[in-house]
């Protein structure tokens, strides 16, 4: 897929949580956004931060073709993301996109599909869920968070399919981690997962035990996003490979987890 460097305009910067913001971007000249696939990511340039230097890799949260918008769900994780959270309507953000591979389409139309997201890891699951539904699948979601207030974009997920929630304090859904949620004991053919590494590893373990196909989206630290700097490598059955080009989505069978 052809990659682009675009100046995108901020349509809305909605603070959805004290730590998270939803950035809605569009082209500054009204042209259509390039093709982007669920699971891919973008690299955004951070202006106005004295301490950051490199671009920030951010998952594609949603692409709304009707409004020609790209959504990025951003967690305040440091100086770079803090600068992004401060963007105002009509500000311009320089974005390199689309990067990386994508989630693979399930083999059978009747497959029971579960999309698992933890924390800001829910981000790619919105676009993927919407695309799956458009393709005729019936994806279900499992969202993990500390507490009810940390469950992000619940209304958006509920528009697409059934949503199960696990919170550590039990303030929403089932109390505990996603791996103990009862939805996992239903019949599932394919899991897609994005979240903190310990969560993905735990889900991968469940999937392996129950022989469920499983793909995870990694977020190793990276510089270029293009496969040039070789910094974001993950050790796989094929050796060290770049998460930015061979991933970020991997079948768990490719990983050495």
């Amino acid at each position: 897929m052809k990659k682009y460097i675009l100046d995108l305009k901020v349509v809305e910067n909605r603070r959805v949580h004290e730590l998270y913001t939803l950035l809605k971007l569009t082209t500054h000249d009204g042209s259509a956004l390039p093709e982007m696939l669920p699971g891919q990511f973008v690299q955004v340039a951070v202006d106005g931060s004295k301490t950051t230097f490199l671009r920030r890799p951010i998952s594609i949260n949603n692409v709304d073709r009707l409004s020609n918008q790209l959504w990025l769900l951003i967690r305040n994780a440091g100086d770079g993301t803090r600068a992004l959270m401060a963007l105002k309507e009509d500000d311009i953000l320089n974005v390199m996109l689309p990067l990386g591979n994508a989630f693979s389409i399930p083999q059978n139309a009747n497959d029971s599909i579960l999309l698992v997201g933890g924390g800001v890891g829910v981000a790619p699951m919105l676009y993927w869920g919407a695309q799956l539904k458009e393709k005729g699948f019936a994806p279900q979601f499992l969202i993990g968070a500390r507490s009810a207030k940390d469950v992000l974009q619940l209304d958006e997920f509920e528009k697409i399919g059934k949503v199960a929630v696990s919170t550590e304090d039990g303030t929403m859904g089932e109390k505990g981690l996603v791996t103990t949620n009862s939805i996992l004991s239903t019949s599932i053919d394919k899991i897609y997962c994005c979240g903190p590494a310990p969560m993905m590893k735990a889900i991968a373990k469940v999937a392996k035990e129950r022989e469920i196909e499983c793909e995870v989206s990694l977020e190793n630290m990276m510089a270029c996003g293009l496969g040039a700097c070789l910094c974001c490598v993950e050790n796989t059955v094929k050796g060290n490979v770049c998460v930015c080009t061979e991933g970020p989505v991997f079948n768990i069978n490719e990983l050495t987890w």
Partner: peptide, 18 residues
């Protein structure tokens, strides 16, 4: 090459250990 992690962002630059 070396094990991950191989990079760190530093003031106006980066460290690498590819």
């Amino acid at each position: 090459g070396n094990p991950y992690p191989r990079m760190a962002e530093t003031p106006s630059g980066m460290l690498n250990a590819v």
